[in-house]
């Protein structure tokens, strides 16, 4: 474990807590893409299959349980909670995320680290996570006024993988651990997809105005 990866995990945890806070505090999921939440639930379910088979550390197990349960709880909330579900922007959240699942799965079949069930599903989860934010970014562009908690949630969610890229660089130079090119490429693609958002997030912070993505 190094500082970059720990900071990345904490940033990821904060993003989840911010989303839970937003939904709990405002009893609303306006501005949140259910499709992105469903994609993330799928990412965690296919990535943490080893939750019960490979014990790495208490920390690793606890974090996996947190990410799986929180993502499923948020999807349930947005679909079934009587109050929250009414605020879901159903007609704005129209990204065809099934294509992202199909594309990632095909990519995983052709480019896994090893052609085993476990590795193919792991690669699938990595490829899918790289594009999982797309429905949320599209929704953000359509919903003009999005509350601050939502923009902070997206900022932290985007920052965590950028910190993981620093972690891979650090591990490359210190542990001679070349890492996995699947993680490197997907992590970079994932971070690049946020650059546009990061720019407008920084602008809105400097001008202390609400974040507005161009139409």
């Amino acid at each position: 474990m190094n500082i970059f990866r720990f900071a990345g995990d904490m940033t990821h945890l904060v993003s989840v807590l911010l989303l839970l806070l937003k939904i709990y505090a405002t009893k609303s999921c306006s501005g949140i893409s259910l499709k992105t939440q469903e994609l993330y639930a799928l990412v965690f379910l296919t990535r943490y299959l080893d939750l019960f088979t490979d014990f790495i550390s208490i920390y690793n197990t606890v974090m996996k349980v947190i990410f799986i349960t929180s993502s499923l709880a948020i999807v349930w909330c947005m679909r079934a909670h009587p109050t929250v579900r009414r605020s879901y922007d159903r007609d704005q959240d129209t990204f065809r995320h099934h294509f992202l699942v199909l594309l990632s799965f095909i990519m995983a079949l052709f480019f896994p680290d090893l052609f085993t069930t476990r590795e193919v599903l792991w690669a699938f989860s990595i490829y899918l996570e790289a594009v999982a934010i797309l429905p949320q970014l599209v929704l953000l562009q359509r919903c003009r006024n999005v509350d601050n908690l939502t923009t902070h949630y997206i900022f932290f969610l985007g920052s965590y993988r950028a910190l993981y890229v620093l972690n891979w660089i650090y591990r490359y130079f210190t542990e001679k651990h070349a890492g996995r090119w699947i993680s490197w490429i997907s992590g970079l693609v994932q971070t690049v997809l946020y650059l546009d958002f990061f720019y407008y997030y920084f602008i809105s912070w400097k001008s202390s105005e609400k974040l507005r993505l161009p139409a």
């Binding site: 995990d9 990821h12 490979d54 790495i56 690793n60 974090m63 996996k64 792991w122 972690n167 996995r180």
Partner: peptide, 10 residues
């Protein structure tokens, strides 16, 4: 990579 590297990251 022949061996399956450990998945020690989240």
């Amino acid at each position: 990579s022949g061996e399956a590297l450990p998945h020690d990251e989240l």
